[in-house]
Design a binder for these strands. Structure first.
Lengths: 228, 228
DNA sequence: TAGATTGTTAATCGATTAACAATC
DNA sequence: TAGATTGTTAATCGATTAACAATC
């Protein structure tokens, strides 16, 4: 029953904190390669990122890329290995649901193609939006999604609807054969096993920032007036 | 020297994982309040969010809001407490740097005002963009930032520049009196003590999704052909 | 060789989860 | 009262950090 020890050299499942740090390394490596560095050490990367080199070493180990003692990693090889590991080599076509302000914004951002994602069409429940084109991509009514997704073999869906609609949309996406959901709504979507859901809710990030900032400012006010 | 034990009832610094879950609770509570629920228990919230109730209880405890045994939390009170804790009650004016596709996108998104953020102007190094208006907000040349930020008492900066420019922009923001940076560039910004930096790099989130999805699909392929 | 760096194993730290007493 | 729920203390789990052996 348990075939986790099967013959195939399946890369082990990387811890999520490590996975989240990889894109940062990719960004740095691109810069270093641009500067002509043939090889990089974790020590160097750690200095540049202000981060413990040991942690970087462990993160890289989890991707299966090997380095050379005393030398470090071949820059190009490491960069290729990481982008490969992240799945950024070949882009997947994706559908976006919710052609509001955020959805429009994401449609207009080209950069995702460098990260393996190509949004090819948008969908909305509002019939008035159907037929339009946003940043060169067609907008359809939500009704068309299931059919088109199946025909085109779409496997990734981007959810930029209001929170209240997100779960319903997620259910539709799953029923349409989508296997990965990039969710921008501030809710935790319920998805079946085998479907991946990554939350990118900006309000979460913003909450952290605003709270931490308020904390800093409060701290400062308290330190300011020295005891008499 | 150490005045961390001072008299003021300073809320303790909440663990980051807890802080990151709070916006989710806010979202759920808004929905439940809309349904007319006067009080909510962690049990109920846990069911709705598919999450351990104990964890929710601990997260809420960190915010200082108190519940009633056997009853739960007063919905309105809890919601108010969380939004207060997150700093979402009064919005702060903010500057955005980097009027590219993502920056334009963020300028067009109204929703941030509900999360305590109001972007009032954009800045760009490209002189050709200065003078324009994006979604009703003026665009200035980067040169004007320091002066305007000081005059207006701006404390939050949003960085949507390319990775290569982000650190330089961050330095400028800090020098201009900004105390909180919301960074969308895939780099780790160096900021002095007392300045808060929250990374919202979408490529990170996208990397996680694409990698996990690839992993699922690979898993599936392996399980598919049963051994002969 | 000497020494920097990789890769791995052990120790520490913090968050999550479980257990349980307190409360209305 | 009985029982559901809060709030807290203890146990578990996993990630980070430190230590160290292996390598070119």
């Amino acid at each position: 029953m348990d075939n986790s020890m099967d013959n195939a050299p399946q890369p082990k499942k990387i811890p999520e904190p490590s996975l989240r740090r990889l894109p940062l390394y990719v960004s740095l490596l691109r810069e270093l390669r641009g500067q002509g560095l043939a090889s990089v050490s974790c020590t160097l990367m750690g200095e540049r990122l202000n981060q413990d080199p040991t942690q970087i070493r462990k993160d890289l180990a989890a991707t299966g890329v090997a380095g050379k003692p005393r030398v470090g990693f071949d820059t190009a090889e490491l960069l290729a290995g990481l982008t490969e590991f992240l799945g950024w080599n070949n882009t997947s076509d994706a559908f976006l649901v919710g052609a509001g302000s955020l959805g429009t914004a994401l449609l207009g951002h080209q950069g995702f193609r460098d990260n393996g994602l190509n949004i090819v069409a948008a969908f909305d429940i509002n019939a008035a939006k159907a037929g339009a084109t946003i940043h060169g991509r067609p907008v359809f009514h939500l009704d068309k999604l299931a059919n088109l997704a199946r025909r085109m073999g779409i496997r990734i869906g981007v959810v930029t609807t209001p929170a209240a609609a997100a779960q319903e949309v997620a259910d539709l996406l799953v029923a349409s054969g989508i296997r990965g959901i990039w969710n921008f709504a501030p809710v935790r979507l319920q998805v079946p096993d085998g479907v991946v859901c990554e939350n990118a809710a900006l309000s979460t990030s913003l909450g952290v920032l605003v709270n931490r900032l308020a904390w800093e400012l409060r701290q400062e006010l308290q330190d300011q007036p020295p005891p008499p």
